[in-house]
Design a binder for these strands. Structure first.
Length: 240
DNA sequence: GCGACAG
DNA sequence: ATCTTGTCGC
């Protein structure tokens, strides 16, 4: 077995305790600067998972310009994978690489959208929330599936949503971001309310199910699209 | 004790 | 997450 995959800096027990502590530091109210740039973050893997690849895309935002938004910067950062995937502890696996990518950014966004949960997490510290604390920036989690919480059925029209509940607590929303397509799970991370989080996700929605920031980060982080980009660059170069 | 379980 | 061809639809 690969020793590197077991080189944990924290035991699961320690990580869980830390999550409960960090969750107390989250701000649930809106505290966001005027938005000119929005970042999208996603993580992918190479070499059977031994390499973690973090992708960050920064888009220009203005109230006038509806999607598609303009890409102003993008970074891909690679480093050895430190932890296996354990449901509930995703942030410890993904955040180190994400921070590596952010360190290379020239632009500091006012808002960050992350592929994964915000507070819709057993201890209210999904990867989007955790990253928000590290960056001290407003973050939103947009997940493609559910980690925790219960919810009613969502309407079929774009924009329909129902609350995601943990007992009596609202921890996010199940949003029909595109008609007839499986809904996404939106939850605030740090420094944002659910209502504001939903507003921003709706505003960044293009023609697809995912908002532009995470859709583009997703593309950059995925192995297949890396090949696609490389191939088209080769074509461009060859045709000149 | 038995399932469920982001990426 | 990732391994993967074709195929249905705008």
């Amino acid at each position: 077995m690969d020793a590197a995959l077991h080189d944990w800096s924290l035991t699961p027990k320690q990580a869980i305790a830390l999550q409960s502590q960090l969750a107390k530091q989250l701000e649930a109210d809106d505290r966001i600067d005027p938005v000119t740039h929005i970042a999208g973050v996603d993580i992918g893997f190479e070499e059977d998972g031994s390499i973690t690849r973090a992708a960050v895309v920064v888009l220009a935002w203005s109230p006038e310009q509806a999607p598609p938004l303009t890409v102003v910067e993008q970074v891909v950062h690679r480093e050895p994978t430190r932890m296996p995937y354990i449901p509930g502890l995703l942030s410890f696996r993904e955040i180190p690489a994400a921070l590596g990518a952010f360190a290379q950014l020239k632009t500091r966004p006012q808002l960050v959208m992350v592929d994964g949960q915000g507070i819709a997490h057993p201890r209210r510290l999904g990867v989007a929330a955790h990253l928000g604390l590290w960056l001290d920036l407003p973050t939103i989690g947009i997940a493609k599936s559910r980690l925790t919480g219960r919810h009613a059925d969502v309407g079929e029209a774009r924009g329909d949503w129902v609350p995601l509940m943990a007992g009596q607590e609202v921890i996010g929303a199940v949003l029909r971001s595109r008609a007839q397509v499986k809904p996404v799970f939106v939850s605030p991370g740090h420094r944002l309310s659910l209502a504001t989080s939903l507003d921003w996700v709706m505003r960044c929605l293009g023609k697809t199910k995912l908002p532009e920031p995470t859709r583009l980060a997703d593309r950059l982080a995925s192995r297949r699209d890396q090949k696609r980009a490389t191939a088209s660059q080769t074509h461009t170069t060859a045709s000149r």
